[in-house]
Design a protein around this nucleic acid. Structure first.
Length: 276
DNA sequence: AAGGGTGTTGAAAG
DNA sequence: GCTTTCAACACCCT
């Protein structure tokens, strides 16, 4: 579930906790998480590396060590915990970074969907999956003419379009539902049918939602709960997501749940009318 | 208690 | 080429 605001929150929390630490060794308990190299090479390459900085692009985290960068994607349920090295391995802990100071960073992922990959410093944005990603919501390249160039004559539903990281980086299911509610746009609207003013409204709403969510430390529901002891507060701001049958805050119509592009989707059927 | 749903992504299929 | 479906996996809910 972690989307841009949650990953940003994780990044900032990790920076206060582990910046400057040196890796003693790495234990890999489930190698499916490690991509691009063997688990042995991965572990070996990280030994003695010092964590200099942590960056983020979209939902990707970049752990910048002295001579190598680790790219981490949490996918659905990835989480990090900082523990003492002597603590027992908990269920679903798949990668453990042991630091020289006796602490350890534990990567926990119930569904094992998350990924980690090493890349030479500075080459993050050349990775095939990152290379083609669109701008982040608050990037000034995320504007009307850019979106129109991406839309062309596409018939995709706007919800699928916004979830596509190659159009805009960092949005996931929760925030797209919120953005479209604020924009009063039905998620199944084909993007080629959006007016300029609707696109502008979507840009505004995206920036508003993401900025507010970052401010509040993300959204705490289900699996994002208590990673690093973080409790986000944006869940109190959700207008539609997970609010099926509850009254719309604008018009009191009960929120309904539909399926768009195979994804569970929450809308107000009154505020978000289908076009035509 | 078996089966469908879950916040993501990319490969495969249409 | 564009769009949709499915698989990776574990757990929760009905």
């Amino acid at each position: 579930m972690p989307e841009l605001p949650e990953v940003e929150t994780v990044k900032e929390s990790l920076k206060t906790l582990i910046l400057g630490k040196t890796i003693h060794h790495v234990d890999i308990l489930y190698e499916g998480i490690i991509h691009g190299t063997t688990k042995d090479y991965f572990s070996k390459r990280l030994e003695n590396e010092i964590l200099m900085d942590i960056g983020r692009f979209g939902k990707f985290l970049f752990f910048r060590f002295s001579t190598i960068t680790l790219i981490s994607h949490l996918r659905m349920e990835g989480k990090y915990f900082l523990k003492h090295s002597f603590e027992l391995i908990a269920k679903h802990e798949h990668v453990i970074f042991h630091f020289t100071d006796g602490t350890s960073l534990r990567y926990h992922d119930t569904r094992k969907f998350g990924t980690m990959e090493l890349v030479e410093p500075g080459n993050e944005f050349l990775m095939p999956n990152i290379l083609l990603m669109g701008p982040e919501p608050f990037d000034n390249q995320f504007n009307l003419s850019y979106l129109k160039s991406r839309i062309k004559s596409s018939i995709r539903p706007i919800k699928s379009f916004l979830l596509d990281q190659n159009n805009v980086s960092g949005l996931g299911n929760i925030y797209v539902d919120e953005v479209l509610f604020l924009s009063r746009v039905h998620p199944e609207t084909q993007v080629k049918n959006l007016s300029d003013s609707e696109i502008l409204k979507i840009i505004d709403s995206t920036q508003a939602v993401i900025n507010k969510a970052i401010e509040l430390g993300g959204t705490t529901i289900r699996s994002y709960l208590s990673s690093l002891g973080i409790t986000g507060r944006f869940q109190n701001e959700l207008n539609v997501h997970l609010r099926a049958l509850k009254p719309c805050i604008i018009c009191n119509t009960p929120i309904i749940k539909i399926k768009v592009g195979g994804r569970g989707t929450y809308i107000c059927p009154t505020c978000q009318k289908r076009k035509g």
